[in-house]
Amino acid sequence: MKGFTLGQYYPGNSFIHRLDPRAKIILGILAIVCTFLCKTLFSFILLFALTLILAILSRIPLKILLRSLRPVLFILLFTSLVNIFMTKGENLLFEYWIFHVYEEGLWNALFMIVRITSLIVMTGIFLTYTTTPIALTDGLEQLLSPLKKLHIPVHDFAMMITIALRFIPTLAEETERIMNAQRARGVNFSSGGLFKRVRSLIPILIPLFVSAFNRAFDLANAMECRCYHGGEGRTRLNVLHYKAADFIAMILLLGIGIGLFFANRFTFGGMIR
């Protein structure tokens, strides 16, 4: 449990790892916009190339990047099937009973796969893989700090996330301890049907909740003892600083986005319907 790392963070020191977390959040958003700008085969090829280049720049093994696609595998499969069979077009390729497959449907399916894949992989590269959750929270807090003027409690949310991240390993350890304690009392967590297994979680969850609440009271006291009084007038030990590289990366990606938009003018091959 001591070697527990949070989220998908892949430790490294690549160009992308070293970017400011705020810049990476903006880059992540730009990347999402980029994927939705693409409409033709040419721009999708460029998008795919961009994703590959980013993957190489981040120095994250391809195997690990592909692992992030596992949760969306079903969506990928489902959307491509829907696209293949439901798209109406001009060039009928295949017909059987109620199934009609048009050329346009195949293109659409391909484009959706490229779009979703690059979306997941690129946001992963910019955010979860190269940025620790805590840096991400810091970045988000400082990026959204102008919203404080609108009385949106940005600091409070960031503090809540920070504390949640801080306590994940603690509560994970606690869960293990409780499970062992219940095992010692004869609870069996690994056999029986679904219903039985879910029911065997109750003797874990209740003590876990009780202890989490006790911890929360303790923590609130400790924070008050250390003069916590909300975000007002609070200074920071580690303040984020934009570097030249951050601006260059953002301008570059913005340029690429504009480029992708104009690449839609080359209309060879298929285009999205």
Partner: peptide, 15 residues
């Protein structure tokens, strides 16, 4: 200042 019993429950930050 005050230091409490459970060291886990009084550390706020992740570093």
């Amino acid at each position: 200042g005050m230091v409490f019993q459970n060291p886990d429950n009084q550390l706020v930050a992740t570093i």
